[in-house]
């Protein structure tokens, strides 16, 4: 497997507080990489650095390199807007646009950037709602507001919305933490299906979830990458004492 993303010497700050210290890691293509660690360890900040969302927060900045297919995301003259079209993102709380219907939400990323015929909208919406395993549940109510769906459905709608921009990578920030167990299982199944097409990085505070779905796992603590390896290795035979303490529930 080739490396899709290579992170080299990444540091990130909120004002004067340093949130990430010298992170180096490579994410292989068409795999699921889980980021675990106690809250406040910098795992969300880490994936928000990958698609340059971190800098949208007032007073936040970062340095270092993030190489996406050989090109530095932070290179000079790189437009963060274009980067984000290649790196889709799903947030902790489902956030469909309240002024848009289910159908419009699914294709929001496209119609906000260019005109689409009604026919194209229908077709594209169906394609990505299917890919996000939501089509069967919503096909009869496509014109209802996106916010009328249940939390789990809203989150899959947000995944469909992210996929419709045709990204190569899907970044997910605790995508199931606000959902019930059944919805969580659906999202996990969906991710497993999606990795054939996409490279997925998922932040989770749920270790079982990381163990279930990911190929590789990274353990963050206090803004540092403590250990990174195959999920099997991390969960059965971690080399760092702190990783072992965390996955066996001895702290955090």
């Amino acid at each position: 497997m080739a490396d899709k993303i290579a992170v080299e010497g990444l540091n990130a700050w909120f004002g004067k507080t340093q949130a990430l210290h010298n992170i180096n890691m490579a994410v292989p293509e068409n795999s699921i990489t889980a980021i675990i660690g106690p809250s406040g360890c910098g795992k969300s900040t880490f994936i928000r650095c990958i698609n340059r969302m971190h800098e949208e927060i007032r007073g936040a900045y970062s340095n270092g390199k993030i190489i996406l297919d050989g090109e530095d995301v932070y290179g000079s003259g790189v437009d963060p807007v274009l980067i984000r079209r290649r790196l889709g993102m799903v947030f902790q709380k489902p956030n469909p646009f309240p002024t848009m219907s289910i159908k419009e939400n699914a294709v929001a990323g496209i119609i906000l950037n260019k005109r689409m015929s009604r026919h194209e909208i229908e077709e594209t919406a169906e394609k990505y709602l299917r890919r996000a395993a939501l089509w069967d549940e919503v096909k009869d109510q496509l014109n209802k507001p996106g916010v009328s769906l249940s939390g789990g459905q809203q989150q899959r709608l947000c995944i469909a919305r992210a996929l419709a921009v045709e990204p190569e990578v899907l970044l997910a920030d605790e995508p199931a933490s606000a959902l019930d167990p059944i919805s969580t299982a659906k999202i996990e199944d969906l991710f497993t299906d999606l990795k054939e097409r996409y490279t997925i990085v998922v932040v989770t505070h749920n270790m079982q979830q990381a163990a279930r779905i990911s190929d590789r796992t990274a353990f963050f603590l206090s803004g540092r990458l403590i250990e990174y390896g195959t999920t099997d290795k991390i969960f059965t035979n971690p080399s760092d004492k702190r990783t072992e303490d965390y996955i066996t529930g001895r702290f955090g």
Partner: peptide, 9 residues
């Protein structure tokens, strides 16, 4: 494969 990341305006 991917379009260039930068656009200068």
């Amino acid at each position: 494969m991917a379009e260039r990341l930068s656009r200068k305006k």
